[in-house]
């Protein structure tokens, strides 16, 4: 099954990590393992949740089905987590290669940019993104609080105003 997903044929052999030389393993391994599984698990959860919601929407019953509406609303932060976990998988998993099989990360960095510069800009970006994320959450919350404007939802609008009241 796994060989089919990766290589497109069930005959190819998927090599386990123990087949690769030790100095080509990504570090840290547990972080990589869990971030990958968080991403895949959340992805599966999204697919299931959306399939159920789509089915109910098709039947016209979505806006009365509270046990689906609650998870739909509470899952709001989960895509961000899944997204970040996916990127962590990609970027940790690629180590120690920066170009797979050709160049290691330790050979590819800018030799003339000192560590202090790197740290300074890293902190700068972290600070900027923190501020922007907080602003984002605050603004999104205000928009969600206001709710949809009346008449904007089309034929489902009647049902929406019942449950959003």
């Amino acid at each position: 099954m796994l060989s089919f997903l990766i290589y497109g044929t069930t005959k190819a052999e998927v090599q386990g990590l123990d087949r690769f030389p030790r100095d080509q393993w990504p570090e840290p391994l547990p972080l990589l393992f869990y971030s990958y599984h968080i991403m895949a698990g959340l992805g599966t959860y999204f697919v299931l949740l959306m399939a159920i919601a789509a089915f109910l929407l098709w039947r016209g019953k979505l806006f009365q089905t509270r046990w689906v509406l609650w998870p739909l609303m509470l899952s709001f932060p989960l895509p961000y987590i899944a997204n970040t976990a996916g990127w962590m998988t990609a970027e940790i998993g690629r180590q120690p290669w920066i170009i797979y099989g050709v160049m290691r990360t330790s050979e590819g960095y800018s030799k003339y940019v000192s560590a202090g510069n790197g740290l300074f800009t890293l902190l700068g970006f972290m600070g900027m993104y923190t501020v922007l994320s907080i602003l984002f959450i605050v603004l999104i919350y205000r928009i969600m609080e206001k709710g949809p404007l009346p008449g904007e939802l089309g034929h489902a609008g009647k049902h929406a105003s019942l449950t959003f009241a």
Binding site: S110, Y112, V113, F120, T121, M128, L132, L135, L139
Partner: peptide, 26 residues
């Protein structure tokens, strides 16, 4: 990499310029 700091500062300024235009009315 030679102009590293200046480049990063330019990047931050671009972010802040864009954010200030878009967030102003919120």
């Amino acid at each position: 990499s030679g102009f590293y700091l200046a480049l990063m500062i330019v990047l931050w300024l671009l972010i802040m310029r864009g954010a200030s235009i878009e967030l102003r009315m919120q």
